[in-house]
């Protein structure tokens, strides 16, 4: 069956029109994918960062809260060692888990009994002076509160360190001399 001349003419016209080949489509897809890669990564990183920032902020606040709880305790309750601190009812404060927005923040506390060394200058009436070094024992604790939690793909931790001193009246037996006096 012969086709009408009009249809043949139209088909020829279509053949002359520029069309997209498979290669062109593939190139366009590759360019598109390359362009979208940073976008996808950006969203991915954005979500990761959001989780990261939120969890670190929470962990920091948990650490601050817990170290403030420890600092508010009487000096005698801040027991040397790992997680040995007790509250006024003699209940252990650590380790503890605080659950915030579905994340478990594991809080622990380490206490070191410290002996600071202090240099003291005393002048005498002849215009000279003497420097002595003294160690102060049983009156200073180093407190470290550590918060651990499960981050994206790995366990993260944040620590705060501070010191607490016993400022009640002590005895001179807690202070001992280090080295020899230096006369000036």
């Amino acid at each position: 069956m012969l086709l009408p001349i009009r249809i043949i003419t139209r088909r020829k016209k279509h053949l002359n029109e520029r069309a997209m080949s498979l290669v062109e489509i593939l190139i366009a897809l590759i360019i598109g994918a390359t362009a979208f890669f940073p976008i996808i990564k950006l969203f991915q990183e954005g979500i990761k960062d959001s989780i990261h920032s939120s969890s670190w902020t929470q962990a920091r606040e948990v650490a601050k809260n817990n170290i403030d709880i420890v600092l508010a305790l009487p000096f005698g309750n801040i027991t040397r060692g790992d997680n040995l601190i007790t509250d006024k009812n003699s209940a252990a404060l650590f380790p503890r888990v605080e659950k915030i927005k579905g994340v478990d923040y594991k809080v622990s506390c380490k206490v070191h009994d410290l002996v600071p060394l202090c240099s003291i200058y005393t002048s005498n009436r002849s215009g000279g002076g003497v420097t002595n070094h003294y160690c102060i024992s049983s009156k200073l604790k180093g407190i470290t509160v550590t918060v651990k939690w499960q981050g994206v793909g790995r366990e993260l931790d944040y620590s705060l360190v501070t010191f607490k001193s016993d400022l009640t009246e002590g005895t001179k037996s807690d202070i001992w001399q280090w080295g020899f006096p230096q006369y000036h």
Binding site: I67, P116, Y134, T162, S165, L167, G170
Partner: peptide
Amino acid sequence: SAFADYIASGMAEILKLKVKEF
């Protein structure tokens, strides 16, 4: 900055102790 806050307040505690003892 939070770490620095607690180190500074801790160092102040050591200094308080020194002032108290001497």
